[in-house]
Computed example of a mutant assay.
Amino acid sequence: MRLSVLDLVPVRTDQTTGDALAASTRLAQVADRSGFERYWVAEHHNMPSVASTSPPVVIAHLAAHTQHIRIGSGGVMLPNHAPLAVAEQFALLEAAHPGRIDLGIGRAPGSDPVTSMALRGPAGRGDADVAEFPQYLDDVMALMGADGVRVAVPRQHYVLKATPAASSVPALWLLGSSAYSAELAAEKGLPYVFAHHFSGQGTAQALELYRSRFRPSEHAERPRTFLTVNAVVADDAAEAAALALPHLHMMVALRTGAPMRPLAVVEDAEAEGVPDQHAGLVDAGLAQAVVGDPVASVRRGTDPATAPGRERTVELLAKELIG
């Protein structure tokens, strides 16, 4: 099985941003020594509990502190950025660390509407940026290619390229959590990552749609996928459930519109508990996650303390890892 890590560079109440980045650096080094396939960082903004606001910057730091593991974005939220800027950043990362850089691209803003508007600046076109996502995706792919993009200007065709002499390009992945992203990845012949950790819904349907409609391309000869799944493993199931609480509290805040704050330490999360009216959100989060001890719960997917659906989640995860 090939396992990878998706990191939001979480910031706890007892940490500074520097502490959080140092912790992620140590984790990436452990993953590197342990033979993990890749280490990705996500793009989120205006969230006190998340420090991964700029994937290219974090990727450059992590790649410089590791040796073998692939480092990438999970992902860059393309509507927030000019395609040329993304292409240049990742072409430069690939030049510095050839054969180790992944560019995972997503369509969501990764933040609230006000922050998204601030990111895009006066030229931002709001929903139009999301609507033109397929074209932006094409632009990034072309700009990182050897031929670049020809832009029509008066009396000439101007050639734009992300780097003047690219010897290799980052591996490109399309991220998503819906049928839209699955169909787009299939149409463009791109490897596809389904964000099961985010929604936990429609996973099997999206993957089936992707595989059935896939068109081979220079990026992938056949369908290529993997899943992102929340996983918490400890010596026993009770400890694993406690370790999962801070993240579950953060997800409840996201779902209910509560003020965001740094990630609670386990002891504070246990003391605070979850209001009865939000217990269903916690149960839903546990149902789509892999939480428990290494053998009885996680490997076999038979922990009776978890919500229904655990067995199917683990079965699907194993299928993706092996396939």
Rank of each mutant, 00 (worst) to 15 (best):
S34D: 12
L62I: 12
L175Q: 01
T13L: 10
A87V: 10
D147F: 07
V265N: 08
R107W: 01
V298N: 03
H196S: 14
S168I: 05
P164E: 10
A253N: 15
G323Y: 10
Y192C: 09
V114R: 13
D138K: 05
L184G: 10
M1P: 14
V193L: 13
V76H: 12
A171S: 12
R70N: 01
L321C: 14
E94I: 02
G74D: 00
V5F: 11
T13P: 05
A64V: 10
W173Y: 10
R100P: 09
P246W: 05
V9Q: 07
L243K: 15
G121N: 03
A318G: 05
D283C: 03
G72F: 06
A296T: 15
E208D: 15
V41G: 04
A287P: 11
D139M: 13
L227W: 08
G74Y: 00
G145M: 00
P246M: 05
H65A: 13
D19Q: 08
A146F: 06
R299H: 14
Q201K: 11
L137T: 10
D102K: 06
G145K: 00
K319T: 13
S217H: 02
K161P: 03
L160R: 07
G35Q: 13
I322M: 12
G189V: 05
A91C: 13
E311V: 13
A87K: 14
R213M: 05
V290R: 14
I69V: 04
T17G: 14
R2Q: 11
A220R: 00
V265W: 07
G285P: 06
Q288N: 04
M250D: 15
E315C: 04
A64T: 11
W173I: 01
S24V: 10
K319V: 11
A162C: 01
S199N: 13
A128M: 14
V232L: 08
I69S: 00
S34M: 06
A146H: 14
K319E: 15
P216E: 04
G280S: 14
A42L: 10
V229P: 11
A20Q: 10
A287K: 05
T163A: 14
I59W: 00
A91H: 03
A279K: 07
V5A: 02
G35V: 12
G292H: 08
S217G: 08
S178W: 04
G104H: 03
F36R: 00
D139A: 15
P56S: 07
D127V: 12
V50F: 05
Q135F: 02
V295E: 14
A264Q: 15
A307H: 07
H44L: 02
